[in-house]
Design a protein around this nucleic acid. Structure first.
Lengths: 95, 95
DNA sequence: TACATAGTTCAAAGGTTTTTGAACTATTAA
DNA sequence: TTAATAGTTCAAAAACCTTTGAACTATGTA
């Protein structure tokens, strides 16, 4: 079992990942589509550079907010709703 | 009515306010007590300086996560649960 | 093979957030 | 009036986050 400090570290990481307008827009976009999409397609929809996209997807993945599926040279991402449920929807239960 | 950009600005502000270990500990503390507490008392419980406390309470207040009630020379704070409900518990409905 | 495409990595630059201590205001109590 | 207490403000420093472009790896296609 993880201790209190580790629990709040994870929460801080998730809230940091959510605390950015680009990443929130990505989440919104992935939520609407509700299926796997290639990073490149999301990046183009957000009007951001490849490098910036790569940076933001890494932060979302490390926070556990998206899952990643590499197929050929493309990386398909989608929301990991269980993480949102744990830290947002059930915030008070898991605080 | 606010537009989409304003909505996500507010969300970013709330997630930034949550994205800090001290502020998350303050929220945890206020949640357990579940009543007004003076800033000074919270600050002492968190082992932070007056200045640091003042800084963090300001961020929590500006995000709408706490309400403030000044009585004499003391400032009593408590959680504003409606903001947590809106941005966390009902995250998907308000995205 | 050669070329194109998807995505990563790196370091530098710029921007933002947090901590610090000293000086401050406002209120209370002796 | 004097001293103590609660909290704020300020500027400087330190720490941290984000963007940028160039160079890179890996894969797919002609």
């Amino acid at each position: 079992m993880v201790n209190q400090a580790q629990k709040s570290d994870a929460a801080v990481q998730i809230f940091k990942a959510l605390a950015d307008p680009i990443r929130l827009a990505i989440i919104q976009y992935l939520n609407q589509l509700d299926h796997e999409v290639a990073c490149g397609e999301v990046g183009r929809a957000m009007h951001i550079s490849k490098t910036s996209g790569s940076y933001h997807f890494k932060i979302l993945q490390e926070a556990g907010l998206i899952t990643v599926n590499k197929v050929g040279r493309e990386k398909y991402v989608q929301l990991d709703r269980s993480t949102f449920d744990h830290y947002l929807t059930h915030f008070w239960q898991n605080l």
